[in-house]
Design a protein around this nucleic acid. Structure first.
Lengths: 225, 225, 225, 225
DNA sequence: GATGAATGAGTCTTCATTCAT
DNA sequence: TATGAATGAAGACTCATTCAT
């Protein structure tokens, strides 16, 4: 199914490998290539042959490692996400720092775990393909969104409990305050690359402003009187 | 490109006359059907035959009104978006109400113009297909995102000028505060339908919380002392 | 089945007819249009809609006069050829002129009946479509080639009988001497329009040379001693 | 576009290995099959699947070697013609034989290079499709017709220069005297297969007669007195 | 293992034909 | 009659998948 406006130059095979490739690294290389192309073009519009070429192997080789396009996709989602969700939030939980500082850690941590990594691409891809792969959507929700939400929720609850933050509707707040970071990550793989770069705001400035606004929203009532 | 096991039963056709002449209404019906399926499945994975069947016509009929799949897609984007971007923000500009009230109008207005309409679906689709149709991405940016940003920016600037809001980085704030609504709209067509409904927060509650937090973030410094 | 290198601009409907069209003339107009397009593009690559448009009517109207594309084709062959083969050769038979003069009449007559008329186009079309429409090929052979051959054969036999020509293999001669005229007719609708015009020889010069060569070939032996 | 009732039985495939790898020989086999079917049915009416089946491969395989139907057609014309036009006429030029003998060589050589080879089919096909593929028509004119004309023209000029032939209009003569052979070649792939075989004259008889008539037409004037 | 030639089901698109108006 | 909207069978072309080498 040709997606018209994009010519498909034969993707150059990777140049002669400097070392003989170890077969253990193949799956990771294929997944890397698949991620890049799925994110850019979408699942249906990406040809397995392009993925293979991107990874420097032939079409047939791909099938030695993945049983089908769909399996490749699922493996990609699982393997790309799982390592990223392991440890985030654990350091935060035990810290003794002020909750506002934990918030900063959370936002900047999210960004460094999402916006700066492949997870940003995966997020866009999941959003795009969710209806075609509901399993993956649920997996993403369960393994990324929910744990991420818990981190923020925990911080907010801690802050409220310690009197640092005023009492708020934590469930809604989590949704509201994850959104800017999540959307920025998604955007960076869809609309942003098509538009003038000056429309894209520097992440540091973006995150600092976000943090500041959130902290103000959380400031205890008495501070307002 | 068969996406997973999606059954495609031939929809039974009404008996009486084999077909009707409905030249006027066909294009709109086809666009409606196309929107629904493109949003749900993505551009590449949607078969024209399904769109036609959804609109109650045959495959060939589609080609009487749209020269190709791509033309249908472009027409759909243009025709679905254009009527929605006409008048929003004009009422707000002239109002005499407090800026906080304008903010409420803006947020709830966005939602009623986006979340509750087909624009939410289009947003998801554009995000998903932007890289394959950069023209459409730019069109969306220019006709939806930028005008929407201007409405919020105008309110914020007015509030600041009138001393109702403290001075802030308006450009960043606009990005931050559009995000929750935009992401909720996108989400509602991708992840949300795949997950338990209790994960979806009621829009009213969501918007009210958003408004409250934003207003607190905007509260003038003196009020904080 | 798009024949690529030819764009298909919507053929302009004939301008508003100056008089109300008489329905009796429709079939002839349609056949005229069909002939032109079939000759130019071939049977399969010609769309009925183009034929109809060429004749200034709509697609549906065509079916009021011809049951199918194939019937149109057959009617076209029959109706275009039959009137042309009626009377040719009759005047020649009775003439008292020298046989060389009859030869001249024959060659120039052929040309004026073939090269200068639609029969030249039909010839090309029949040659092109013969294998797909063997009936038409046989019809053409029976109604055009064979009668044409008989005219020439009769002249040659008369000339031989009267001692004007030397005895020859008339059957072969007829084939040989019809060929230049027939091929020129066919060529004028296929290769010639694609090549530089200077490659096309003026018919008068062509026919005169042909006649001269044929007459020399027919000159009685004694004249050679 | 179904041309009449041509049955298309799925050709049963040999059992043993499902297929063989024959990268080298495939293109030639496909071109061979394409030539046969294009000549017989015409370009538009020939289905690629039939060509593939004729060559013993599947539809998809064809696309491994030719990018499109049109490319197949063009490759077929080029590759079929080029090897045939290499050396013809070179032996003739240097000969010391009487010009009448060269004429015989030319006519019989043409026939053995055209009538008896696939070039006869190509000629018919080119004539049929010229208007749809003007490039190919020009190519044919330039690579086949013009060189062939030059051979005959050179012989005639040599004969005239040596006093063996009387002075004539060589340009016209070449056109006139190539025609019977060319038309016989074309005819053999269009009308002839549809008609009674007794209408087809034996090539030997045909060529000998042609040669004799031409030589008489060329006999020097003095010989006639 | 690795390759890429071969396959064939699937999808876009065209167009001869039908039929409601 | 005339129209042209609607139909659907058919064909060009793609690409996930298989398998001979």
């Amino acid at each position: 199914m040709p997606i018209s406006p994009r010519p498909r130059p034969k993707p150059p095979r990777a140049p002669a490998p400097r070392w003989e490739r170890r077969k253990e690294s193949r799956p990771a290389e294929l997944i890397e290539a698949a991620l890049e192309l799925f994110v850019e073009r979408g699942y249906a519009a990406t040809r397995l042959e392009d993925i293979a070429a991107h990874a420097g192997v032939s079409k047939g080789t791909l099938y030695l490692y993945f049983a089908s396009k769909e399996e490749l996709f699922k493996a990609l989602v699982r393997q790309s996400i799982v390592p990223l969700i392991e440890t985030f939030g654990q350091g935060i939980a035990q810290s003794d720092a002020p909750s506002s500082e934990l918030l900063r850690l959370c936002f900047f941590g999210w960004w460094s775990k999402i916006g700066a990594t492949r997870l940003s691409g995966i997020s866009k891809m999941i959003v795009a393909e969710a209806r075609n792969f509901p399993d993956m959507a649920r997996f993403f929700q369960k393994e990324v969104v929910t744990p991420g939400s818990r981190v923020l929720a925990a911080i907010l609850e801690r802050g409220i409990a310690r009197g640092e933050f005023r009492p708020i509707d934590v469930e809604v707040a989590v949704n509201l305050w994850m959104a800017p970071i999540a959307l920025k990550a998604i955007w960076s793989h869809s609309i942003a690359p098509c538009c003038a770069p000056e429309l894209v705001i520097d992440p540091e400035r973006f995150l600092n402003a976000h943090l500041e606004f959130v902290l103000r929203a959380l400031a205890p009532e008495k501070a307002l009187t």
